[in-house]
Design a protein around this nucleic acid. Structure first.
Lengths: 221, 221
DNA sequence: CCTGATTTTATGGGAAACCGTAATTCATCG
DNA sequence: CGATGAATTACGGTTTCCCATAAAATCAGG
């Protein structure tokens, strides 16, 4: 059962809505902070006091201001929080819409739920909290029309490296040298070309510009 | 004095916070809708009933769903609403952060205030409403550090066309033919190359992939 | 260890992009 | 009309990219 919840969200308005949503669910033992570092402090203190939080609801992106932070955003916060309190449930509440980026959260950060800031987000938030309190994960609804057919292709580590390098301005012909320096398995120029062609084929693209743009939109890079 | 307010905002959570903010200001005669078309209807009906709204608080971007809309977003809504009720005050509440886009709103749509969805947005919202009720305009605070050095370059129509074509996969060498077909003034390949180099220079890029990506992030394409 | 299949790498020719320079066009003004 | 200067376009050489093919390496199974 979830009774004690911490909200980490820099937008005052979003923070207020989450508070109100928790009220609606009759969860009264809540705390809310506007900075990641504050969030981590609260988690650590509550843990030490023997009264830990059950759930962390956090945004991903926190706008930097003159209040310098150690933790740079939600990703960092989640990692740090889990390190302190491995059993802490985490629900991400963010405007992030890129499927690849969201998948990463479940896969690498081992989060328990994701609700996208969108049309019915308050309703979804309630549902997500209910699911998590039953020890189930809550996955986002992909109602987005932007996620059409094109998402079939699944990127490998190798793909990501290549595209990232291209997006950073590295010449294609210089990529093999980089791959060798970093001990990445296939390092031939032909292999790089082959992969790029496969990806462009898969998406129906003809130019690297399209590929890079699409990968960015997907959140793969 | 502002007593009757309409909220147009598709995100349920944001909508809730705005409602709560109005409650805090003791404004009780409020209505809220999740679609632009609904907003316009409410405005027209209230006007006909002889009890018009004093203020419209609206988002800019409304996510499309299966509920097909005539008005495509906040810009359209504002224009349509002002056409029906010229004296209606308008306060835009949006995540838009590009100064150029915000200036356009004050200049072309003649809005009365803008509050960016950011750290202290709820507080700003209150302040903005107070200002507007005194028949003053409320301008956003530009605390954003993201509008740093790189945004200096201002894109011309020509720039946008070229980059858009590249992003769509057109070969550089085929661009001159396209420009001629569309009667765009400089159409030589050299001119295209020149512009691309100027832009890449301005941002410190070396490859088109970087340029295309950056323009997308900036919202220029 | 051998063999065959798959993957990776090397190579070369041709297309596109890059870059400097020269020729042309165009607008302006005497 | 002619001259001047800026912008546009055309051209040639070089680099990079693209693509097909061949050579080499890797791997699995017998």
């Amino acid at each position: 059962m979830i009774t004690k919840v911490l909200i980490a969200e820099d937008h005052e308005s979003a923070n207020i809505s989450v508070q109100k949503t928790l009220e609606d669910l009759a969860i009264t033992d809540t705390a809310y902070v506007y900075y990641c570092d504050d969030a981590l402090n609260r988690i650590v203190h509550a843990l030490k006091a023997g009264d830990p939080f059950d759930l962390l609801i956090t945004d991903l992106y926190f706008e930097p201001d003159n209040n310098i932070q150690v933790l740079s955003g939600g990703m960092d916060l989640i990692a740090a929080a889990k390190k302190e309190q491995s059993g802490l449930k985490v629900l991400v509440f963010s405007a992030e819409s890129r499927p690849a980026a969201i998948e990463q959260l479940f896969k690498h950060e081992d989060i328990d739920g994701f609700v996208r800031k969108a049309r019915n987000d308050a309703r979804e938030l309630k549902e997500a909290i209910r699911e998590i309190s039953r020890h189930r994960r809550y996955f986002p609804r992909y109602t987005g029309q932007e996620t059409g057919q094109k998402n079939a292709y699944s990127f490998s580590e190798f793909d990501i490296v290549i595209i990232t390098l291209l997006a950073q301005g590295m010449l294609q012909k210089d990529i093999p040298a980089y791959l060798q320096r970093n001990r990445i398995k296939p390092s031939g120029l032909s292999s790089v070309e082959k992969r790029l062609n496969q990806m462009k084929d898969a998406f129906g693209f003809t130019k690297n510009e399209q590929l890079v743009l699409h990968c960015k939109a997907l959140g793969a890079i």
